[in-house]
């Protein structure tokens, strides 16, 4: 829905890649942030969706001295700035279909409710509601007239 807006130049993208990799170095079958092109098309998509995050992204890229190592830089940032930056990076990362596939996350794909006609009953098989029903009513019945 949102066209690609390129607010970062090449140097800023390189800075973003380095910072984002300290947040998401990858492993466990998942790519690092830079391997997932967070600093490329995906940050553009994230910033097109929420242009007001660009200030935070640029501010962090501009203030953290290179070379970055570890997460000390994150702890040194103002909390709100850090939150907006990590949100933009994570938002960009999780948009990448490669990442989604590796996580087994299909995105918001339609799935009919009910997938099978007896799907709702399936989960209630084996009398799983039995103990709840056996205990009976659990509410308090007040006297009908309000106190005045």
């Amino acid at each position: 829905m949102t066209g690609a807006v390129q607010v970062l130049d090449d140097a800023q993208r390189a800075g973003l890649a380095a910072l984002a990799d300290t947040l998401i170095p990858g492993g466990s079958g998942l790519p690092s942030a830079s391997a997932a092109e967070v600093h490329g098309q995906w940050i553009d998509r994230a910033l097109a969706a929420r242009p007001e995050l660009a200030d935070a992204v640029l501010a962090v890229i501009g203030t953290v001295p290179e070379p970055v190592a570890g997460l000390g830089w994150l702890a040194d940032l103002d909390r709100s700035l850090a939150d907006r930056f990590t949100f933009a990076v994570a938002g960009a990362y999780f948009m990448n279909p490669v990442v989604r596939r590796a996580l087994g996350y299909p995105g918001t794909a339609p799935r009919p409710l009910l997938a099978a006609p007896d799907e709702a009953e399936f989960y209630l098989d084996d009398d799983v509601l039995g103990p709840v029903l056996a205990r009976g009513h659990v509410f308090r019945q007040p006297p009908e007239e309000p106190a005045r």
């Binding site: 300290t22 947040l23 998401i24 466990s28 998942l30 994150l74 939150d83 999780f94 989604r100």
Partner: peptide, 30 residues
């Protein structure tokens, strides 16, 4: 989605122990 999942660690009043980011973040996601 995954961003909301991460918020369970990083939200302002979350009591999750340790941070989410850095070494191990991919394993935490997985």
């Amino acid at each position: 989605g995954p961003l909301e999942a991460v918020d369970k660690w990083t939200g302002p009043t979350s009591l999750a122990e340790g941070g989410f980011w850095g070494e191990g973040s991919a394993e935490e996601m997985r």
